[in-house]
């Protein structure tokens, strides 16, 4: 059976890592294999790490306000390395008014402060079901 693998990453210069670490741990406790790559990653680094690790999801965390610029860049870099099938989602301090824009750029969902882990797990399970299961 395929185990779901998730990369949790922080693009850009934002040093707020509590939320990312919290999410990484919470997802591990829900049975996923989680790779955390630490702070200060470029979108290209994130995309290449996602490919090397063969993850199903990339979860981005940003509290600095740079999400409208950096989240779409990650989606773009994944596209550049032929990994459009990897699902991107995110969280952090993100105004509701930005969510529509981010979704239009290929970020599947945004989870802000106070989101229950169950909501995030339900999202992962639903999205996984709709991914077709090929070799690997």
């Amino acid at each position: 059976m395929r185990k779901i693998r998730i990369l949790i990453a922080k693009p850009g210069l934002d040093g707020h890592d509590r939320g990312a670490k919290f999410i990484a741990r919470a997802l591990q406790e829900n049975g996923y294999e989680v790779i955390y790559t630490g702070i200060r990653q470029t979108p290209k680094q994130i995309a290449l790490a996602a490919v090397q690790e063969d993850v199903d999801f990339v979860g981005l965390s940003l509290l600095s306000g740079a999400h409208n610029e950096l989240f779409p860049k990650v989606v773009e870099e994944l596209h550049n390395v032929g990994a459009d099938d990897i699902i991107v989602f995110g969280g952090g301090v993100i105004p509701n008014s930005d969510i529509e824009f981010l979704k239009s750029k290929g970020i599947r969902a945004i989870f802000g402060p106070g989101t229950s882990i169950k909501t995030i797990v339900d999202f992962i399970e639903n999205e996984s079901k709709s991914r077709n299961s090929k070799i690997g």
């Binding site: 406790e29 294999e33 989680v34 790779i35 955390y36 630490g38 680094q45 790490a49 090397q52």
Partner: peptide, 28 residues
């Protein structure tokens, strides 16, 4: 984890400077 079967794979954090080198492959 023997209980949840999940895992938090953190070794890669220390090796991230090599991620963009095409002659290096890192897998957790």
């Amino acid at each position: 984890s023997p209980f949840t079967k999940g895992a938090l794979l953190g070794d890669r954090i220390r090796m991230q400077s090599h991620t963009t080198d095409p002659f290096v492959y890192i897998r957790s």
